[in-house]
Design a protein around this nucleic acid. Structure first.
Ligand SMILES: NC(=O)c1ccc[n+]([C@@H]2O[C@H](COP(=O)([O-])OP(=O)(O)OC[C@H]3O[C@@H](n4cnc5c(N)ncnc54)[C@H](O)[C@@H]3O)[C@@H](O)[C@H]2O)c1
Ligand SMILES: NC(=O)c1ccc[n+]([C@@H]2O[C@H](COP(=O)([O-])OP(=O)(O)OC[C@H]3O[C@@H](n4cnc5c(N)ncnc54)[C@H](O)[C@@H]3O)[C@@H](O)[C@H]2O)c1
Lengths: 210, 210
DNA sequence: GTGTATTTGTGAAAAATTTCTCTATCTCGC
DNA sequence: GCGAGATAGAGAAATTTTTCACAAATACAC
């Protein structure tokens, strides 16, 4: 139940988020319980896979009935560390940074973009959605107060490593990177890359030979 | 050489794009050749993995020397179907849609967002970056001329299935979806989800127990 | 209560993917 | 051309991940 997670497969972690999304949706649709096969059908993930994924963390279901959605949402949230609010630092106040900072969906999941940073003096001092834009050189001073541990990198590829170094220097331990480059960071830092051009290229692969 | 690809592992496809990015960068840095271990070092991917991935498609290297970067870029581009320009339809002219449509990086890789669609009358008729915003109901008429096969969905989750259905109805075969929902589409349609909230949640997992 | 229909959790099997290892091949300096 | 050094390609092994399949557990109708 409060079993200490051993070594969890990477693909499992990535699916947990999908289960959580599905559970939230079903709850919003007034369902109280769901079987693994129902969740499987909705997410496109195999039912045995779902049960095995959950079994790494405990026993959350009831044979003959399925999963209580309220309890499952709570468990998944706790497993994912979503039971605490996370402050997020955004580096890069450009097109993408603006979209991200005005997106309300993060807040509903406990992620709050609390400050943005740029090197363009024209942007420093302005507001971007609900977020103030600071100069990058103020990063340390700002985060000394905030203590945020999550960063988002939305700067040109040529500046991304600088941004990562700056973020890790002020205590950020997890980074979402939108720049199309492979970044270096100490192993205890988690960096996830969201490369949209790469996603387009992968789509292209499936369209080829036409 | 021009061997017909058999069945290629999904993870291989996703890495090809990373190799391509690395090769482009090294070329820009004036390198003419690179060994698998050099590319491996830069991408963080195992060298044997790279060689195996490439070997699915042919023999592109030279023992003792490595890979000719110019030739490798050409091969990877062809393998990924990037040797033709792709027109892209964007559904959803909101915050994210605006960021995407004004991004110049796609064009440099052969993806051109040629039209945007929305249902908000206030947005219809306006220009978003270099792209005109049409009403969604004009999708069929517009694509009858363009014949685009790639779509991007940047609408609220509640409208995403509608957007997918509309796109597939006009001949789109590959879709990049930013809405946080699992979508249904015929099996011959490729749908890739880019769920940024999910990415944040995965980061959160690695920060938990703090 | 009893019996039947469900559905979980899980060990085992299967499948997929990654990594190892080694041979043949090629380069390059001389 | 020759020999030393480097590296690709690929079979085999190892590892990881997914799927199967079934016993045990529970619900629910009667
Ligand atoms: N906009 C998109 O839709 C999109 C799509 C795919 C990928 N990307 C990637 O996301 C990143 C951001 O894209 P964008 O469109 O927002 O770019 P942008 O040019 O609009 O914005 C980049 C911002 O980063 C700032 N910047 C530059 N160097 C900096 C530094 N050292 N520290 C802090 N800020 C710095 C610039 O002043 C600018 O405000 C890029 O790497 C891009 O390749 C964006
Ligand atoms: N903005 C972000 O940074 C961000 C981050 C994560 C996820 N997302 C997801 O991306 C999607 C778009 O986000 P956004 O911030 O651009 O939202 P937004 O509200 O700014 O824009 C959505 C647009 O879609 C239009 N729309 C609504 N229904 C439509 C329909 N049936 N057909 C065509 N257009 C329709 C709306 O008129 C609006 O212009 C959402 O699903 C959101 O959850 C966005």
């Amino acid at each position: 139940m409060s079993a200490p997670p051993e070594k969890i497969p990477q693909p499992t972690i990535e699916r947990l988020s999908a289960y959580l999304q599905c559970v939230r949706l079903m709850r919003a649709q007034e369902s109280a319980t769901a079987s693994s096969s129902e969740i499987a059908r909705r997410t496109g993930i195999n039912a045995a896979q779902l049960r095995k994924d959950l079994s790494y963390f405990g026993e959350f279901g009831t044979p003959g009935l399925g999963y209580d959605l309220r309890a499952l949402e709570a468990h998944l949230s706790r497993i994912m560390g979503l039971d605490v609010e996370r402050d997020v630092l955004l580096v890069g106040a450009g097109n993408l940074g603006r979209a991200l900072s005005s997106y309300t969906g993060f807040g509903r999941r406990g992620f709050r973009i609390v400050a943005a940073f740029d090197v363009d003096e024209a942007k420093v001092g302005t507001a971007m959605g609900p977020v103030r834009v600071h100069h990058l050189r103020e990063l340390a001073a700002v985060n000394a107060e905030l203590g945020a541990e999550v960063g988002v990198v939305a700067v040109p590829a040529s500046a991304a490593q600088v941004a990562v170094d700056a973020l890790t220097a002020v205590g950020v331990r997890a980074i979402l990177n939108f720049a199309p480059v492979t970044l270096a960071a100490r192993p205890e830092i988690t960096v996830r890359n969201v490369d949209l051009t790469s996603q387009m290229e992968i789509l292209s692969y499936y369209l080829r030979s036409t």
